[in-house]
Nucleic acid binder design. Structure first.
Lengths: 222, 222
DNA sequence: GAGTTCGGTGAACGAGTGTTCGCTGAATGC
DNA sequence: GCATTCAGCGAACACTCGTTCACCGAACTC
């Protein structure tokens, strides 16, 4: 309890989606959340493969044995964290594209949304950065799958965008992967930068995205 | 010894640079290499923060205490591995740009060189992927510093490239970072892909780099 | 109200850990 | 030849670790 710097401000405070009836269930969910939050906090300065069951239960205020009532593995817990980490991103990207279709505006808003997300959920993003190529295969695969879904979603959105509507599906997918990759890299760079570096990173990525957009406008003409 | 899948084909076989006179020195260097190679092998399936001193010395055929004759920390060993990992890349990028200046050709050759490098030194690249955002700060910083040097080098090369010679230094740096990031991501994707996926990844990245190049050709015109 | 379910506990298991210590013996400097 | 250096060793210290076990007691079912 003394080792946790952050009181784990339950990042998804909504108790609505699956409160499930029963005091029993609620208490179990609370313990589960405590484990997840404790792990997330510890993972800010550590790898998943360096994390220990005892360490997590200690931070969560459970006994070591209690862990196994919720997860078989730390890897299993890790996969859940991956899903939580990226769940919000999907609704965010849709929100960005919901407005106007001006590419320049889209770019600015995308960067703003990413910066805000990084500022709000740094722990989740740090975790993703660490485990995207980390030592636990199942977690790595979960991240890859989630990012692929993300690229797919963006490719679908590009299909209704004037500049890219006429492209082949493969080319749209290629462009979507380019954008996703740039944004992921940006998020990861932002998360371990201090305040002044962040402004520079945001400026750079805006320019880079504009350059990519410029390239895609001249694509078919080549 | 039984747990090492790879007999660690000393990636830098040159005994010339610093053989230093003396049997003593040579034996010490051999042990040091054994430690580095053993660690690199173990890190193919593990994080640096999950690695143990005893584990490394066991794989290297030393006693645990022997480790401390060479490194104070596993982190220190990790930093050395980072430097070795990226040392070759610098000479490679110069080799690519030494030839003709045709952008399309440069792109094709860059992708080829990366693919070849990944095929030849997968362990080093896997290690870089893991530790670029891993749990050990000193190693993370070493990777970041090395990649920054890399971007700087590329920016210098862009200064003598016809399309970008007239750009501002900041814009060239921006473009260099975009290229470096794309290539790093590609290398990391290649390293955990199987043979058929690799062809697809190479094709995609070629297209993406062409699109970026197209954008940079129209940049000043915007 | 009686009986069942089940999340959480504390103790215990064997195994593995980082690091330090004094020692050895071959390579060195003279 | 002799004294010195020092890479490597085995043993030991004092941990931490993952996982299992029987058990408790509050929440549930009926």
């Amino acid at each position: 309890m003394t080792s946790r710097p952050d009181p784990a401000p339950a990042p998804d405070p909504a108790p609505a989606p699956a409160p499930a009836a029963g005091v029993r269930q609620a208490q179990k969910q609370a313990s589960r959340r405590a484990l997840l939050d404790a792990a997330l906090g510890l993972l800010e300065q550590q790898n998943l493969s360096g994390l220990g069951v005892r360490e997590v239960t200690r931070a969560a205020g459970l006994s070591p044995a209690g862990f196994y009532r919720h997860f078989a593995d730390l890897a299993e817990l890790g996969v859940v964290l991956v899903e939580e980490s990226l769940a919000n991103l999907h609704v965010m990207v849709r929100a960005v594209f919901a407005g106007s279709g001006e590419p320049e505006l889209l770019i600015d808003r995308s960067v703003e949304v990413i910066a805000a997300h990084v500022a709000e959920h740094p722990a989740y993003l740090r975790f993703l950065a660490r485990e995207r190529h980390g030592g636990v295969k199942s977690v790595r695969d979960a991240v890859a799958a989630e990012l692929a879904r993300f690229a797919e979603e963006l490719a679908d959105l590009l299909a209704v965008q004037p500049d890219t509507a006429a492209w082949s599906a493969a080319d749209r997918r290629m462009l979507a992967e380019l954008y996703v990759d740039r944004m992921v890299s940006t998020a990861l760079a932002l998360v371990e930068a201090d305040a002044e570096e962040r402004a520079a990173i945001a400026r750079t990525v805006r320019t880079q995205l504009r350059l990519i957009n410029l390239g895609s406008r001249h694509w078919q003409a080549s």
